[in-house]
Design a binder for these strands. Structure first.
Lengths: 196, 196
DNA sequence: CCTGTAAGTTAATGGCGTTAACCAGCTGTG
DNA sequence: CACAGCTGGTTAACGCCATTAACTTACAGG
């Protein structure tokens, strides 16, 4: 019987493809083994557990996600950078819902040398670079960053989950929302935010 | 041996309490049975499956969530209503992370008579009533609603998951974000949204 | 060639959700 | 007050899944 020649990397990649098809919650060792033409226990020669597999998928996904955001923002500024970055995020989540869910679930690092940390930092750095085009007060940057992350994460995951039921084009809502954010960011009162 | 006198309702309520303690993904029939002082199969006399239990928890949670939003908005208008509603949502998710996750997972109805439908509709109606205070163009209401839902859902779930790592007060970011939204909503260009 | 190791295999364990078969406590009737 | 039946519990058993152990065999280096 010929060998399958698996590696941690090839197992992770196959897992990443599978998780997008069946959903994060439905990932199972048996399904992945079948997909790779191998019996379930063989996977444990390359991956220590299902949690380890999920984490490897998450790291890989976060890195690809960071690349996508960086590439979209690259060479643009201000409104253009915001629109391109937001669209890149939405596209990534739509095309890789399982991997995004895995990355999201693993985004709290398990330790100080968790390889997801640099990947997360690259994402944050891209959003921060994009926001720099709006010349915000430094005390407000973190708030704007958190808002941006919240709104894009919320929209993308709700869309991927089929959460927008009403019959109105989701594309239009997304464009409207990005324009709303752009307008608000271009017209921020200076000084620290007034607390109600 | 005395009987436990369980009902579908009491099982659902115990499940709701448990899911907030251990998290949506960790809910198990065995754990809930133990919590109720009963053997696992006893639960199946009141609930047809774990999926059924999760769905009942979700319906209950969505209804309580709808109440919380309605009560917060009640008697307020404009900025006050937005701030109160947003805070109510954030508080609900923080206090009931498991139930919110269950409600979120079940928010796509399984059929036309799924009891989650009216609960979801009440939530939407509250947000729509709140937005009415901003006198938006009717063509833009749905977009504003989706944005609001996205941003509050995103912020709340990220916060509940411990996603805001940087050392800056999350309360301040939330207030800043709500103010940002309020400013933007009070100053919306009329006519249909410009599409880039 | 041939030997050792690493990548597969089959077999076994334990935890879960679920179902079947059984039994006992409450309830409503004579 | 008895007792019959339903209803809400029990124990036992099944199948699926993650994981581990014990084994075997393909292949790489000497």
């Amino acid at each position: 019987m010929p060998r399958a020649r698996l590696t941690p990397l090839s197992v992770t990649e196959a897992g990443a493809a599978l998780i997008d098809e069946i959903g994060f919650a439905n990932l199972s060792m048996g399904l992945l083994a079948e997909r790779l033409g191998v019996k379930t226990p063989a996977l444990y020669k390359h991956v220590t557990s299902q949690a380890d597999l999920a984490h490897r998928i998450a790291v890989r996904a976060m890195a690809e996600f960071a690349d996508a955001i960086r590439d979209a923002i690259q060479g643009r500024a201000g409104s253009d950078a915001l629109a391109a970055g937001a669209q890149a995020m939405r596209t990534y989540v739509r095309e890789h819902p399982g991997q995004y869910a895995a990355a999201d679930a693993a985004s709290r690092p398990t330790g100080p040398d968790d390889p997801i940390i640099p990947a997360v930092e690259r994402v944050v750095a891209s959003w921060a670079a994009m926001l720099r085009g709006y010349h915000l007060d430094s005390s407000q940057e973190i708030h704007a960053l958190r808002m941006l992350r919240s709104v894009l994460h919320g929209f993308s995951t709700l869309e991927a989950a089929g959460g927008f039921q009403i019959d109105a084009p989701v594309d239009d809502s997304f464009t409207w929302m990005v324009n709303f954010l752009d307008r608000g960011l271009r017209d921020i009162p200076t000084g620290s935010a007034p607390v109600s």
